[in-house]
């Protein structure tokens, strides 16, 4: 699905990431942890071709990212649901329309899709807030709306960047449960987080591979997790 081979990326002359090799297999569950500034977000952005590697290769669904046109990338992103740390909504549209945005831009908003949207909004517990504007939502509600938007296209892969960064522990567990449920439905999940407690809580629910990022490289995390 998503494969990185000897991939590197740097914002200046110094590489932030180098010799990154990873394959996200279908149905797998990964955590990516590491200190702030280690490159977790950069790694995720490489995974959905928001950044192109300065070295090595990144392949999305059998296609080399560097060789993909912008339309190819747009098509690939319809198969990748991304939950951002800062959520990124269109603030002038109600929550329901923001969640439906991937359907709208792909021209797939049919009657059946509208029914699925209702169900999805209920699944993330935002039925009562469907008509609210994003700035009116709490941190937890925003994260759940972002998760709903990430999965509405029934993507193969879900990438979440610090999805519990702005919410309390109870809400973190609720979001984690939703992501685990999605993984059990066959979705590949990668969560970037520095919250080790969340990773420990997840291990009780799902078989997850934990990766640690540091010194510009990715390692399999030790038994301390």
């Amino acid at each position: 699905m998503i494969e990185l081979e000897d991939a590197a990326y740097g914002y200046g002359t110094e590489p932030l990431l180098s010799e990154i090799g990873l394959r996200l297999a279908p149905g797998s569950f990964h955590f990516l942890t590491g200190p702030s500034g280690a490159g977790k977000t950069t790694f995720l952005r490489l995974c959905y071709a928001d950044l192109l590697p300065t070295g090595g290769s990144v392949r999305l669904f059998e296609q080399e990212a560097k060789a993909m046109s912008r339309d190819d990338i747009a098509k690939a992103r319809q198969r990748i649901g991304v939950v951002h740390q800062d959520c990124q909504f269109l603030d002038h549209l109600p929550v329901a329309e923001n969640i439906a945005l991937p359907l709208t831009v792909s021209g797939r908003k049919t009657g059946q899709e509208a029914a699925n949207l209702e169900e999805l909004i209920g699944w993330v517990g935002l039925r009562a807030r469907a008509d609210a504007l994003p700035p009116e939502l709490s941190g937890g509600e925003r994260q759940r709306a972002a998760l709903a938007r990430a999965v509405i296209m029934d993507p193969d892969v879900i990438l979440a960047d610090e999805p519990t960064g702005n919410v309390d522990w109870e809400m973190s567990l609720r979001l984690l449960t939703l992501l685990v449920e999605l993984n059990k439905m066959g979705k590949t999940v990668l969560i970037a987080t520095h919250d080790l407690a969340l990773i420990r809580a997840a291990k009780a629910q799902v078989s997850a591979r934990v990766l640690r990022i540091g010194g510009g490289r990715i390692h399999l995390a030790g038994a301390d997790l």
Binding site: A74, V82, Q88, F89, L101
Partner: peptide, 16 residues
């Protein structure tokens, strides 16, 4: 630009 960024994130093509 912020709107364009969100639209691209959710898979909008340039033509759209």
């Amino acid at each position: 630009q912020g709107v364009i960024k969100v639209l691209r994130l959710v898979g909008a093509r340039d033509n759209y």
